[in-house]
Amino acid sequence: MASRTLSRPVLRKRAVTALLYAALVLFAVWVLFPFWFLVNSSFMTPAEAVAVPPHWIPEEPTLGNYSAILAGQVAPGGAQVGLRVLTALGESFAVGILTVVANLALGGTAAYSMSRFRFRGSRLSYFSVLFARLVPPIAIVAAFFVALRDLGLINSRYGLVVVYISFTLPITILVLKNYFDGLPRELDEAALVDGASRLQALWYVIRPIARPGFIAAACLVFLESWGEFFYALTLTNQLTIPPVLAGFRGFFQFNWTTLAAATVLAVVPPVLLALVFQRYVVRGLAQGVAK
């Protein structure tokens, strides 16, 4: 073996690499071990899902849970799934996208302003943005309900978007202000010298350069909105996916396998989305903290 001839630093380096890969395996276990049981159950019949001891892989795998959801049939546990999982996934997607758009428009301009200008109360508003997240949803949901009802926005995706702004906008501003802080001011100034108005400078110069930051903030906001349960529960009739998933936890039926399959389907779109934009997310957030 060649190892006899290896020097100590090389050995050391190999040991470190081995350790790192071991850590990578541990990381994968942390993520996948709980999730594996969910995926596993989604291919099981109810009887197998409650087997003692649990089965590591389905012994009699079934696609029944998925076909019920995708074709709107009755699931193996008896749940009438209909097409509501698919409809709700669509609504969740729409709510997520609209929330993102609203956030980028509102948060983008505000973050730019807080990064570039010092106006009366600018510090205060930056602080209060973060502490806006301190208000517990349980306490203020009644106020939202009344307001949305007056606006005719109960059980509406637009109503949810308005409410979701309350907890996503602070994050957007936080991320984007950091991002703008990292962009050299000379960019704005050069644009202004060229005769552009300040608004034009923002739109034509800053916006394209800041795209990674926008995409990063968009992904954060989309995921926050995707998993939100309590507002969707109280302000809609199972409009988005989290309350639909909660609906499978019934009293009179055992719907765990249906719930598992629906959850797997619900996790796929954001993961795909994040994969597509992964480069941008990391780069975008990265820029944000650059000094």
Binding site: F27, L223, L245, L259, P270, A274, L275
Partner: peptide, 16 residues
């Protein structure tokens, strides 16, 4: 691995 990182975060907390 970075893709895996998204899975827990994409799982709604109530389902987690």
């Amino acid at each position: 691995a970075r893709a895996l990182l998204i899975i827990p975060w994409a799982t709604p907390v109530i389902i987690a």
